[in-house]
Design a protein around this nucleic acid. Structure first.
Lengths: 107, 107
DNA sequence: TTGCACTACTGCGCATAAGACAGTACTGTT
DNA sequence: AACAGTACTGTCTTATGCGCAGTAGTGCAA
């Protein structure tokens, strides 16, 4: 079974969650997600998700030059993003609980 | 947030789970899933998934005529399907646990 | 007897989103 | 000079859930 399809719709949420505490740039978000357990996630998936979330109005962004390499494009949760994180988390939990009950041995 | 994307890759698992106890035909599987909590699932999604699982070799099938309407195409889990259900369930649980830890308030 | 609702399934085509891949660009090391 | 690591963009492919139309059977109501 491929984890690729499981990610659909959830990567948005994972990225928002990673940004909850502090701003981060794409490459760092990628590393955080891989460390957190989504080890096989592709870089293009994360960059694409960030663009999508930005376009949807959930993120603010600003560029910071780096002395150790290329510039970094930081993303930050805005109020809409925080609201989306909260709501998305609820939807996810409800969905996960439905799946769990389906998978459990029936009475 | 749309539940559509959350279903990706998981509908397979949900259908296999519903078939664990006894055989069922498409329309009934659809009803069972909707009752179980996946209330917004589309009929074409279920029929498509059944065809896909059958083509992948996880299901056996047979047609039963009905006196209360059109014929019914029953599906049954075969050994490969049971194995897939077991393995898919494990992958799902691990994935869900990763997501849960990402969503939880950080230490 | 015509029409509608419900059951049951097939097939077409679309939209979404993850990912592979190539390319650009900068820094530091060998 | 070559290469690895960092950091990002753009293009194309693929998987899959779903809308919609169509087919077909039963039974009920106007």
């Amino acid at each position: 079974m491929d984890t690729t399809q499981l990610l659909k719709g959830v990567l948005d949420l994972a990225v928002l969650a990673v940004l909850r505490e502090d701003d981060a740039y794409g490459y760092d978000i990628l590393r955080r997600l891989r460390t957190a357990g989504l080890s096989e996630i592709g870089d293009a998936s994360v960059y694409g998700t960030l663009r999508r979330l930005f376009a949807a109005g959930y993120l603010n962004t600003y560029v910071v030059p780096s002395e150790e390499g290329p510039h970094r494009k930081y993303y930050a949760l805005n109020p809409a993003g925080r609201s989306q994180l909260k709501q998305g988390g609820e939807v996810w939990r409800e969905f996960a609980s439905t799946m769990e009950s389906l998978l459990r041995e029936p009475a």
